[in-house]
């Protein structure tokens, strides 16, 4: 393995491209060549979650065609990786040929921290950053992929960084994709609770592995607590890498 294929979710491509750059920087720092298929678009998560499976299949087929030749595929999004690994097989339940292709692809797709810690066996990136950090357990990352120890280990290995206890770390931030727009009052109650616990924790930054949660939490912080910041794990780590390899957002 000398390269890793970047799976950059649509939300990162269109709204938060910096997270993609950080991901590429970390992959490079690990001695691998990041590759990027310009043909990639969206994994179909939003359509699938909304019940539009024909539309989700259309996107999923495109995704499989783009990525299926790759040895390893890395993405800075727990929910999108969960979609590809755990939902595609169900999505193609009635199309055995596509289901086979989905199942063959699934084991080669990794969430970023999972890739670094489990696949490469690395926890210490040689990074340095002075900060007290709270880690938010994104639901798809934690409950869908079982990924929690990996990002914590990566953060703990950053010199100068302390992980502070964070009440309700594993309680949903209320994003839920279209849920946040369809049920704004419930969603707001949840994100305000999450932010309340963050403020209580005394941490400087709230770090997470999912760009969806990040949009939600950062969007709320910007409106209500403009001084406070939430950050994607990729941005946090890339910003802490030795000069020249990283990229500080």
């Amino acid at each position: 393995m000398s390269s890793a294929s970047l799976f950059i979710p649509c939300i990162v491509d269109l709204v938060l491209p910096g997270i993609g750059e950080s991901t590429a920087a970390i992959v490079r720092h690990l001695g691998l060549t990041p590759r990027y298929h310009q043909a990639q678009t969206c994994c179909g998560l939003m359509a699938f979650n909304s019940g539009f499976r024909d539309e989700a299949r259309r996107l999923a087929r495109h995704f499989i065609e783009v990525f299926e030749a790759d040895e390893v595929i890395v993405s800075p999004s727990g929910s999108c990786v969960n979609m590809v690994k755990n939902r595609y097989p169900e999505l193609f339940a009635d199309e055995p040929a596509w289901q086979r292709r989905a199942l063959a692809l699934a084991p080669r797709v990794f969430e970023l921290s999972q890739f670094i810690v489990d696949h490469l066996g690395v926890t210490d990136l040689g990074a340095t950053r002075q900060a007290a950090v709270a880690y938010h357990e994104s639901c798809s990352t934690l409950n869908g992929l079982g990924v929690s120890a990996q990002p914590r280990a990566l953060l703990a290995a950053v010199r100068g960084t302390t992980l502070v206890p964070f009440k309700g770390a594993d309680v949903c931030c209320g994003f839920g994709g279209t849920f946040s727009n369809s049920f704004p009052e419930i969603s707001t109650a949840l994100v305000s609770q999450k932010v309340g616990f963050f403020l209580e924790s005394g941490a400087d930054l709230l770090v997470m592995c999912d760009p969806g949660c990040l949009l939600n939490i950062q969007g709320y912080l910007h409106r209500h607590h403009p001084g406070k910041q939430a950050l994607h794990l990729a941005d946090y780590l890339a910003g802490a890498l030795p000069a020249g390899t990283g990229r500080r957002p």
């Binding site: 950059i8 990162v12 491509d13 269109l14 709204v15 938060l16 491209p17 910096g18 993609g20 750059e21 946040s180 727009n181 369809s182 049920f183 704004p184 009052e185 969603s187 707001t188 994100v191 305000s192 949009l215 939600n216 950062q218 969007g219 709320y220 910007h222 409106r223 209500h224």
Partner: peptide, 16 residues
């Protein structure tokens, strides 16, 4: 619904 309580970052000039 989203904007009731949240902002969004400005869309970047260039996509990834």
């Amino acid at each position: 619904g989203w904007f009731q309580s949240r902002d969004l970052p400005a869309l970047p000039k260039k996509s990834f």
